[in-house]
């Protein structure tokens, strides 16, 4: 039925296209196959971020569906100023942060208290976080406040620049640098408390 109505859906996309090419082809042709391609590339990653932030499988699955609807409805507004992946992740983080705020699951998402932290020394090496074994990493991320977790995921999982993180969270670059320091410090503190050996 769908194929009769929309014959282009079944058109094969042979060569590997960049994300930007997929988006522009989708906008030009409205061929759903291009949107499917975007889904195949990003649904798993969006789910991984959603489950890390929301800590609930059902919520995370619903989030994936709603985030893709948002992507679909806003694709024509994508300006190309950032990478497609950054744009998709920004929708993902903002969606999850909104859910957490609405459910008031995590009060850390409701405040921006930088007071007293401005002189914090960045004494936690990146390698400490990056080389934490998977099982322990999962445990620590489960305990860390969502705002800190989101920052760490953006920096270490998505390799986002300070500028990109700032534009997603609507904060200045210096505020983001401070948030990263604080999140790393929090990570180490919880790690040491959880694994005192």
């Amino acid at each position: 039925m769908i194929n009769l109505l929309f014959p282009l859906i079944t058109k094969d996309i042979g060569r590997t296209l960049t994300d930007e090419e997929i988006v522009s082809e989708y906008l030009a042709t409205q061929n759903v196959a291009y949107f499917d391609k975007l889904y195949d590339r990003y649904s798993g990653k969006i789910y991984a971020k959603s489950i890390s932030l929301l800590r609930d499988e059902d919520l995370a699955e619903d989030a994936v569906q709603e985030i893709f609807m948002k992507i679909l409805l806003n694709l024509s507004k994508f300006s190309g100023k950032s990478k497609v992946s950054t744009w998709i992740y920004s929708i993902t983080y903002n969606f999850c942060i909104d859910i957490i705020r609405r459910k008031k699951k995590d009060p850390s998402m409701l405040m921006d208290n930088f007071s007293g932290d401005n002189d914090m020394i960045d004494d936690v090496d990146d390698s400490f976080l990056l080389e934490t074994n998977i099982r322990r990493l999962k445990t620590i991320l489960g305990k860390i406040p969502s705002s800190d977790k989101a920052i760490l995921l953006m920096k270490y999982q998505d390799d986002m620049s300070i500028r990109d993180i700032g534009s997603i969270l609507n904060k200045s670059e210096s505020a983001i640098k401070m948030k990263i320091k604080r999140a790393k410090h929090k990570f180490k503190t919880i790690y040491v408390e959880t694994y005192p050996d």
Binding site: K45, K49, V64, Q65, I134, L141
Partner: peptide
């Protein structure tokens, strides 16, 4: 980078649910 490895493992767990959601979206 174990952050990326964790993401990869969580993505793999999504495969079945992912197909259902893809159908709904289509």
């Amino acid at each position: 980078n174990n952050f990326k490895e964790l993401e990869r493992q969580q993505s793999e767990a999504f495969d079945n649910a992912g197909n259902k959601i893809k159908k709904k979206l289509n």
